[in-house]
Write a protein that binds this DNA or RNA. Structure first.
Length: 270
DNA sequence: GAGTATGTTATATG
DNA sequence: GCATATAACATACT
C-alpha cells in the first residue's frame, strides 16, 4: 500500500492536507530507523546526528506554520519544508526506494518517505514551532490572517502588492498560485503599489485570502474541484477569464510569472 | 538545445 | 534600513 499525502506544488493548502493525512496515519508511531539520504537537504545538522535524533522517538502530533511541517517527537520536532517539488508518502510493507527519496522514517506501523526530485526541500530538528518561526522571521500563518491582521502587516511596508503577499515574513503560506488567485478575485493588478490600495480593500483581501485557502483544502487541492469563478481551475495564458471571458495574459512581477485578466485587473495608473 | 517551472536565500544596487 | 532585481540552487518537462 502506498498513500501520497498531498497533490500539487506545496503551498499552504497542500501542506495542510499532508498534515491532516499524516495525523491520521502516523500519530503514535515509533521511529524504528531513520535515513537522512541527502546531506545537502539537512538544515543545520549532519545526516548522522539527525538520524540519531530521530531514532526511537514517538510521533506525538503533526503541526504546520505556513508551508512548514513539523513532526512533534516529544521534546524536539522534525521540521520539513517541501520546497518546489517535494511530496510525502506513507508506505506499508516492503516498498522499494522511491525515485527521488531524500528522507525515510521507518516506523513500527509503516514508512514515511519524503520524495523530492529538485532537492529544494529541507529538513532538520527544531525545539518548537515558535522557535523556528522566530528564527526565520516568519509572519503569522495565512489561515489565521483576517482583514485586520493583513492591514496591520502591510501598513508597515512599502512596495508592490504581489511580492509582498509572497514574502513569508509578511504572511506565511501564500505562494505564487494562491497569490494570483487572490489578486484575481479582488480585481487587483499584481503590480499595484500597496499605497494605492485603500484600507478597506486590503481588509477585504485578508478576509478573502483565508476563504481561498480553505476552499482549496476542502477541494483536496484538486483545482478542478474548486468553485466556479476560480482562476486556478484553468490558470494558463489565453484561457478565458471565468468572470468576463477575456483571454488571460501572463506577465512577470518581482521575477515571478503572474496570470491575470487584463480586463478585470486594471493596470495601476500611478 | 532553449526555455519554462508553482520556493527560498544570498548578494548587489539604488 | 528598505525596496528591487538577479542569480543560484537541481531537476524535469515541453
Amino acid at each position: 500500500m502506498h498513500h501520497r499525502m498531498m497533490r500539487g506544488v506545496p503551498e499552504l493548502p497542500e501542506v495542510e492536507t499532508a498534515r491532516r493525512q499524516l495525523r491520521r496515519e502516523i500519530t503514535g508511531a515509533r521511529v524504528v530507523k531513520a535515513l537522512a539520504l541527502d546531506p545537502k537537504m539537512c538544515e543545520n545538522i549532519g545526516p548522522g546526528e539527525l538520524e540519531r535524533g530521530l531514532t526511537g522517538k514517538i510521533v506525538e502530533g503533526i503541526e504546520r506554520h505556513g508551508k512548514n511541517l513539523f513532526l512533534d517527537l516529544g521534546g524536539s520536532m522534525l521540521h520539513i519544508h517541501l520546497g518546489m517539488s517535494g511530496s510525502l508518502h506513507v508506505l506499508s510493507g516492503w516498498d522499494r526506494r522511491m525515485t527521488h527519496e531524500r528522507l525515510r522514517l521507518e516506523l513500527d506501523s509503516g514508512t514515511m518517505v519524503f520524495d523530492d526530485p529538485r532537492r529544494f526541500g529541507r529538513y532538520g530538528l527544531t525545539g518548537s514551532v515558535e522557535d523556528f518561526v522566530a528564527k526565520k522571521g516568519l509572519g503569522p500563518d495565512a489561515l489565521s490572517v483576517d482583514g485586520r491582521v493583513l492591514l496591520e502587516r502591510l501598513n508597515a511596508r512599502r512596495g508592490t502588492i504581489k511580492p509582498l503577499l509572497l514574502d513569508q515574513r509578511v504572511v506565511a503560506g501564500i505562494g505564487n498560485l494562491y497569490a494570483d488567485e487572490l489578486l484575481f478575485q479582488l480585481r487587483v493588478h499584481p503590480r499595484t503599489p500597496v499605497a494605492a490600495l485603500s484600507p478597506s480593500r486590503i481588509e477585504a483581501m485578508g478576509e478573502r485570502g483565508r476563504e481561498v485557502l480553505r476552499a482549496s483544502i476542502e477541494a483536496g487541492t484538486d483545482f478542478s474541484l474548486l468553485p466556479d469563478g476560480y482562476l486556478l481551475r484553468d490558470r494558463s495564458g489565453g484561457a478565458p477569464c471565468p468572470r468576463c471571458s477575456a483571454p488571460l495574459t501572463t506577465l512577470k512581477v518581482g521575477g515571478r510569472t503572474s496570470v491575470i485578466c487584463p480586463a478585470c485587473q486594471a493596470c495601476p495608473s500611478g
